[in-house]
Design a protein around this nucleic acid. Structure first.
Lengths: 112, 112
DNA sequence: CATGCTAAGCTAAGAATTCTAGGTATGGGA
DNA sequence: TCCCATACCTAGAATTCTTAGCTTAGCATG
């Protein structure tokens, strides 16, 4: 058995960025977003549904994604989300902020 | 005027690691920890006192740091904290976990 | 056709961490 | 003497995440 994927419990705040980045490539439904993040992280990140759905609601409320009922390739009903123009801007903002923050943390960790 | 240092509001959970890493070099008091992190991060990270002191209590409760009343080089009374052996182990654990997590996030961000 | 599994969505309650916004005390310089 | 910076602390709000549920429906298997 492989390692269990980690919960995202050490990096709250990065979830929005991960979702926006995922949707910046393909429109997807919630369940598909979880699977994409898990697979593309090399089975390291597991997004709990109790984190995901509130996050999707947050993002939609902020106008960064748009959801609409549709059908998956599996013929299942699902809410398909796509990123908006504002969402792309927000992704850019959060990506830069994340890069600055991890750089700052790296500096502290390496400081003498 | 320079940029304002960021609050740590995007990476909760990293605060404990930053404190442990700081104390792994020098024993310090709370106020000094804040200053060290701010300076060594290139003025990017600002730890609020309302985050710091509860964090120090957490870490001490877990046996990862030891606090004792003493005097700073400025002749001020202060609680001087030093890292314990268990704290060094914990720092190692958290550092590895952080590295794995940021790598996993990077994979998602760069995935096609 | 009944049963069950998986895909898919959702929510409420609690835990954990951080921020806001206060308060207290004291050494040293103006 | 007065003020500022140093130094510590706490309560309450805000946010995010986890836990632990529930519901529906397609499809495969017996």
């Amino acid at each position: 058995m492989g390692r269990k994927p980690q919960k995202n419990d050490s990096l709250p705040g990065s979830l929005d960025m991960l979702i926006l980045r995922t949707l910046s490539r393909h429109s997807l439904h919630g369940y598909g977003i979880v699977q994409f993040i898990q697979q593309s992280s090399g089975n390291e990140l597991l997004i709990e549904e109790g984190s995901l759905y509130p996050a999707l609601q947050r993002l939609e409320l902020n106008g960064w994604i748009d959801g609409a009922w549709g059908v998956t390739p599996n013929n299942r009903k699902a809410r398909i989300y796509k990123i908006t123009a504002a969402g792309r801007k927000q992704l850019n903002v959060e990506t830069k902020k994340y890069a600055k923050l991890t750089l700052a943390i790296a500096r502290v960790m390496e400081a003498q």
